Amino acid sequence: MSQSQQLHELLGEGSEINIVCHNNPDPDCLASALALGRIAAAAGIDEQQILYSGDISHQQNRAFVNLLDIDLEPFEPATLQNRQPDSLLAFVDHSIPGQNNAVPPETDVDIVIDHHPAEDIDARFVDHRAELGAAATILTEYVRTLDIDLDADLATALLFAIRSDTLDFLRGATATDYDAAGYLHESADQEMIRQLSTPSISGGTLDAISTAIDNRIINGAVLISHVGRTTERDALPQAVDYLVRLEGVQTAIVFGLVDDTIQISARSPDARVNVGNVLNETFDDVGSGGGHHDVAGGEIPLGIFADYTSDDTQLLEMVEQIITARLFAELNLSEETGE
C-alpha cells in the first residue's frame, strides 16, 4: 500500500482533524495544511481546523492567507484536551510536539508530514522526507495520486509554497520538487503567484534590516548582526537573506529581541557549515534552534535577562555579548572582527 493510500485509510477512521502548523507558519506549512484539509474532506472528514501559534507577521505570509482565504484558528491546548476518541491530530512541516509548536510534549500525534531534519518522530502515520525542498511537494503527490480536485487556490498555494521554500528552486530543490511544480503549474493562478511574490514591505521591517546592516560584525567569512528590538519578527530572515549576499560572507546570523524572546535566523551556502547544527549546539541548553544545513532559526526565552534589567539598551548589550560569544565559540572563531 502506498503512503498516500495509507494516509487515506487512516483519515477514513476519523470524524474530525486538527491540523497544527508550526509557530509563525510560512507558506509551505500553510499550503500543506490546506492540502491535508482537502484530502481529509475527500476521505469524509467534515469537521476540521487549521491551528497555529505565534504570529503571521511576514508581509508575504499575510498576503498568502488573505489572498487564498485560508481559515486559521489560534492554537489552544484545551482543543486537544477535549478531543473525541476518533479525532485526529496532524502536524505538517514540523514533527515533534513541543518543538517549534505550542503542543505539549508527549502528546500523541496521528499524522506527521515533514521535510525538516528530525529524529525520533512518533506518530501513527509518518512521511518524513528530509531530502525534499518542501513539505508541499509531499502533499502535491498525495493530491495527485488520490485524485483530489485541484482548483486554482489549492494549486496556487502548493506551487507558491514549493517556490518559496526552495528560493525559486535555487535551494535544496530536487527532481521531485520540479515534477510537483510542473503538475501544479497549469492549474495555478499566475497573477496571484505574481502578487504573492512581490508583497509590500512595512516600515518596521525596513528599519530592522537597516539596523542589522549598521550592526554587522564580520569574522572571516562569518557575519553576525542584530536588529535590536522589533515587533517585526519576520524582519530577521529578511535581514539575514540580504546580508548573506555580502561579498566574502559565507555564513550570516542575525538575532533580535521580539516580545519576551531572542529570535535568531541563520543562512549559510557554505557546505562546510551546517547552521541548523550550529544553532542547536549553541543554544540547546537555553532555548531551541535547528533547521537545514543552509537555513536555520532559533528562539531563546529572555528569562533571567529580562529579570536583570528593565533598560532595553542594557538588555540588548548583554544579549549581544552573550549570543555573539557563544556563536564565536561554536564556530571556533577568535574575538577579532572586521566591519
Rank of each mutant, 00 (worst) to 15 (best):
S2L: 10
Q3L: 14
Q5T: 15
Q6A: 11
Q6N: 11
H8P: 04
L10C: 07
L11G: 04
G12S: 09
E16T: 11
E16M: 05
N18F: 15
N23W: 02
D28Q: 06
D28A: 07
C29R: 02
L34G: 05
L36H: 03
R38G: 04
A41Y: 06
L51F: 02
Y52P: 07
S53A: 13
S53Q: 01
G54E: 11
G54C: 08
I56M: 03
Q60W: 01
Q60D: 05
V65T: 09
P77N: 06
T79H: 13
Q81G: 08
N82Y: 10
N82D: 15
R83D: 13
Q84F: 00
D86E: 12
D86V: 06
L89I: 12
A90G: 07
F91D: 07
F91W: 07
H94F: 03
S95P: 00
G98M: 06
E106A: 14
D108K: 05
V109D: 12
D110N: 13
V112A: 05
V112R: 03
V112D: 11
I113R: 02
H115N: 09
H115I: 09
R124Y: 01
G133D: 01
G133V: 00
G133Q: 01
L139F: 04
L139R: 04
L139M: 13
L146S: 08
D151K: 01
A155C: 13
L158P: 02
L159N: 07
I162V: 13
L170K: 13
A173D: 09
Y178F: 15
D179R: 15
D179A: 15
A188N: 07
A188H: 08
Q190P: 05
Q195N: 08
L196I: 10
T198L: 11
P199Q: 06
L206D: 11
L206I: 15
A212R: 04
R216P: 02
I217H: 10
A221I: 14
L223A: 11
G228Q: 09
E232L: 13
L236V: 12
P237D: 06
A239Y: 07
D241K: 11
G256M: 13
V258E: 04
I264C: 00
A266C: 06
R272S: 15
E281W: 02
T282L: 03
V286E: 08
S288F: 02
H292M: 06
H293N: 07
G298C: 02
I300W: 03
T309M: 12
S310V: 10
D311G: 04
D312E: 13
E320F: 08
Q321D: 14
I322M: 07
R326V: 09
E335R: 10
E335K: 12
